[in-house]
Amino acid sequence: MITIYGIDTLLNANKAKMSDVLHGCMTRVLGLPEDKRAQRFVPLDKSNFYYPGGRSEQYTVIEISMIAGRSEASKKQLIKEIFAAFERELAIPPVDVEITLFEQPAHCWGFRGMTGDEATLNYTINV
């Protein structure tokens, strides 16, 4: 599950392409299948989105929740890939992107009427 926050006018104008860019990173680095796109965009009025100094109105916060099990190298590669892809494909520089990965054990996830440790997935977690 990915949640993306940003100023409404800029986020809404870019969200379709941003969705494709993020999903491309997830499939390339983590091996997620094409149909495993779970994203939520949260466009905020400028008056409700405070961001650190030295950032522009393109400042974008990306929170990625995932089942634990990926290697440190894979997680670092994913973060770096997102920074590079946002700059290359969306013209959003790395200074304007904040990424946080949240991991929970499989038993803490619930989907398709079961917990994550009971589910059979069509992709590998331990990459």
Rank of each mutant, 00 (worst) to 15 (best):
E34G: 10
E34Q: 14
E34I: 14
D35A: 09
K36D: 15
K36G: 12
R37M: 14
R37T: 10
A38W: 15
A38N: 14
A38Y: 15
A38G: 14
Q39I: 10
Q39G: 08
Q39P: 11
Q39W: 05
R40S: 11
R40F: 10
R40A: 15
R40C: 13
R40K: 10
R40Y: 10
F41D: 07
F41H: 09
F41Y: 12
V42K: 06
V42G: 12
V42F: 02
V42C: 14
P43G: 05
P43M: 00
L44S: 08
L44T: 08
D45Y: 01
K46A: 15
K46L: 14
K46N: 13
S47Y: 06
S47Q: 14
S47W: 02
S47L: 12
N48M: 13
N48H: 10
N48I: 09
N48Q: 11
N48F: 08
F49L: 11
F49Q: 10
F49G: 13
Y51M: 13
Y51L: 13
Y51P: 15
Y51A: 08
Y51N: 14
P52F: 09
P52W: 12
G53I: 10
G53R: 13
G54N: 01
S56Y: 11
S56L: 13
S56K: 12
S56A: 14
S56G: 14
E57H: 11
E57D: 15
E57R: 04
Q58P: 09
Q58L: 11
Y59F: 15
T60K: 08
T60D: 07
V61Y: 12
V61T: 12
I62S: 04
I62D: 02
I62Q: 01
I62T: 06
E63L: 03
E63Y: 08
I64N: 00
S65P: 07
S65V: 03
S65M: 05
S65R: 04
S65C: 05
M66A: 05
M66Q: 15
M66P: 07
I67C: 08
I67E: 09
I67Q: 10
A68W: 01
G69E: 06
G69H: 07
S71T: 15
S71Q: 11
S71E: 14
S71L: 13
E72V: 13
A73M: 10
S74F: 00
S74C: 01
S74T: 06
S74E: 10
K75C: 05
K75Q: 08
K75N: 13
K75T: 04
K75P: 02
K76Q: 11
K76W: 09
K76D: 11
Q77E: 03
Q77M: 04
L78M: 04
L78I: 06
K80Y: 07
E81R: 04
E81Y: 01
I82D: 05
I82H: 03
I82W: 00
F83P: 00
F83I: 03
F83Y: 06
A84G: 04
A84P: 03
A84E: 11
A85T: 00
A85S: 07
A85P: 02
A85L: 00
F86K: 01
F86H: 00
F86R: 02
F86Y: 06
E87K: 06
E87P: 07
E87Y: 05
E87M: 01
R88H: 04
R88G: 04
R88K: 07
E89S: 00
L90I: 02
L90Q: 01
A91D: 09
A91P: 02
I92T: 00
I92E: 03
I92M: 11
I92F: 06
P93N: 04
P93S: 06
P93M: 03
P94D: 05
